[in-house]
Every structure is written in C-alpha cells, then in structure tokens.
C-alpha cells in the first residue's frame, strides 16, 4: 500500500491526475532560488523556452545570460562565474549538456569543485520523434562516474522544483536530469525530499521484491506495485531513489535485507545507470538477485514516447514481469 508518510497525491491512481513536464518544476524552482539568493544566475544555450529557464529570465533579466549554441562555453563560463562566487545554473538538453561538454564539466566544475548546477532537459527515451541523437540515455552513467558530482533525477515537477531549490543551496557541483513530456504529478509539496535520501513510496506487508527507480518511471513502478497487490501476486515496496549519487546505501541495503530481491527502473542505459549504482552497493554489502528495467545497450529511435517505452519494455507491465522473474531467481 501507499506509504502514508510519503504524503503522495490523493489523485495518484486516478485518471485526472495532473500531468506536467518535470522541466516546468525546474523553471519554477529557479525563480524561487533566485528570490532567496541573489548570487543565483542562469545561463542558457539557445533553449530558453523549452528548458523553462524563461521563467527566470522574465523575473531576473539581468541575471540571465544567453550564450548561444555553445555548450562547452556554457559549462566553462559558468565554472568561471562559480569560481568568482556566483551560483550558476546552466540549462540545455541533456544530449548536449552534459552530452557535449563532459570534459569541461569534469575539469572546470567537478575537479575545481565549484557549485555549478547542470540542468539536462529532454533526457531519456521520451523525447520521442526527435530520435536517437536527442535521446540522452547515458548521462547518469557519465555524470555519476565523476568525483564531486551530485546526480539527481526527479520523478515529477514538484520534486524537480524541490531539487532545484536545494541544489542552489548545497554548494556542490550538481547535475539534475529532466524530461520533456508531461508526466503524472504524484508527489505533493508535503512529500519529504532531501538530496541523497531515498524515499519509500509504497510498502505492502512482507514485501518480497523492492522496486527502486528514479525519474518519471517511478510512477510506472507504483502502477506495477498496485497491480501486483491487487492481483494478490506479490507484495512489493517501491523506493524513489531520486539521487543516484551519492546513493542512499543504507536504504538499499535495508531493502535488500527485507525483500531479498530488487528490480531497478530507469529511463537510461542499463549499463552504468541507477541499476548499476544499486548493484555496486549490493555486491559489496548484501548481494541479492536483481533485474534491470532500462535501455538494453541500444540507441533509441524516432517514435511516440509511449510507443518507445513499450518497445523498450519500460512500462508497468514490464516491471510486473521483471518482478516475477526476480522472484523465480530468488526461489531457485
């Protein structure tokens, strides 16, 4: 059942649940962060409207900086500004930032350890018709491999707003990943959020599998858990692991002890993503069988977002299948 302490939306399993792209939460979070701290500045690379940086630009035109289609400069200009004492957020699509400017981020932001906040919009498969070039599915892997970098993938627009506001205050290099599509808003302002701490959203009695996800697909995980309970098949728990780095080791180990099997869920390559981060924790501490929902070492392609999630098996029914499979492995 839903964890009452998580204070999730009362409309969570209803058809009329609010649908908002989580990048909108980024834009709203920027305005709040900008109001709280005048050191906050926003740089953008010719994508002001679609990254929702426009909300900040309208409110604080003097603290908004357009750099043109130049993601390497975007990262390095921001590194310079952060070194000076500003708190820069840099906005682009994840395909280009951190896709194009990874080394600049590594050396001038992470190794320098200056508080630049990298916002990667339009991440994941659900950019849809734009095709493989724009479907960033490796960003979690390349960003979490980097020392000093914090990596967050918010599950909905409210969480995205909270992550943005908190990132402005954390004094650290931080990557936040957003998606393009409208997705269900299933957390609320009262849902607790802290970078680095995973949250239990669903827990049935004697759970046998823990489903651990990040990003908007956490909603699919909840649908799967609800379905598995309703059909009296398997009791599960669902954990929103929005922070991939530093990962909440304690929560993962305790879920492994309690359930004895894990399914990871992410809109990202299986190689090197959230699932890999979980597996690293498990193999060192408490190994249990694990299945991975994510991109199977393949590039994406053009198609409608939902068609692609179906094709690459990231829907709730695929999570249900993964749960059944991991249980079999646990028994055998």
């Amino acid at each position: 059942m839903l964890n009452p302490k998580a204070e999730l939306s009362t409309k969570i399993f209803q058809k009329d649940i609010d649908m908002i792209p989580n990048r909108q939460g980024y834009g709203e979070g920027l305005v709040i962060a900008g109001e709280k701290d005048e050191r906050v500045v926003v740089l953008c690379a010719d994508l002001t409207e679609s990254t929702r940086s426009i909300l900040f630009k309208e409110k604080f035109p003097d603290r908004f900086i357009e750099v043109g289609v130049a993601e390497q400069a975007l990262a390095t200009l921001a590194a310079g500004m952060a070194n000076y004492g500003k708190i820069p957020f840099i906005s682009s699509y994840a395909a280009f930032s951190p896709g194009r400017n990874w080394e600049q981020i590594r050396t001038t932001i992470a190794l320098n350890d200056v508080p630049v906040k990298i916002a990667g919009a339009h991440a994941g498969l659900t950019v849809g018709p734009d095709g493989a070039t724009h479907q960033q599915l490796e960003d979690i892997a390349i960003m979490r491999a980097m020392p000093n970098m914090i990596v967050v993938a918010p599950c909905d627009s409210i969480e995205a707003k909270k992550a943005t506001i908190e990132a402005a205050k954390n004094g650290k290099p931080t990557y936040i990943r957003f998606a393009r599509e409208k997705t269900p808003v299933f957390t609320t302002e009262d849902t607790s959020f802290k970078i680095g701490r995973a949250e239990i959203l669903w827990e049935s009695e004697n759970p046998q599998v823990a489903i651990i996800g990040c990003g908007p697909l956490v909603y699919e995980a909840l649908l799967a858990a609800e379905q598995l309970t309703r059909m009296i098949l398997v009791n599960t728990m669902v954990i929103n692991c929005h922070t991939i780095k530093p990962i909440d080791e304690e929560m993962i180990i305790s879920a492994a002890r309690k359930c004895g099997a894990i399914v990871s869920v992410e809109e990202h390559q299986v190689n090197g993503g959230l699932g890999s981060a979980i597996a690293e924790v498990l193999t060192r501490n408490y190994p249990v069988p694990m299945e991975y929902i994510g991109m199977p070492n393949s590039f994406g392609e053009s198609g409608e977002p939902d068609e692609l999630l179906e094709k690459y098996k990231m829907k709730s029914k695929d999570i249900v299948e993964a749960v059944k499979k991991v249980i079999q492995r646990k028994i055998n």
């Binding site: 734009d130 493989a132 724009h134 392609e301």
Partner: peptide
Amino acid sequence: LRKLGTRLQGHPE
C-alpha cells in the same frame, strides 16, 4: 517521417 520504424528519423542517421 519521425514514425516508429522509419528510415526517415527525426534527425538523420
């Protein structure tokens, strides 16, 4: 163009 399975990807491949 831009449909699932097409050779005419949204960006050319």
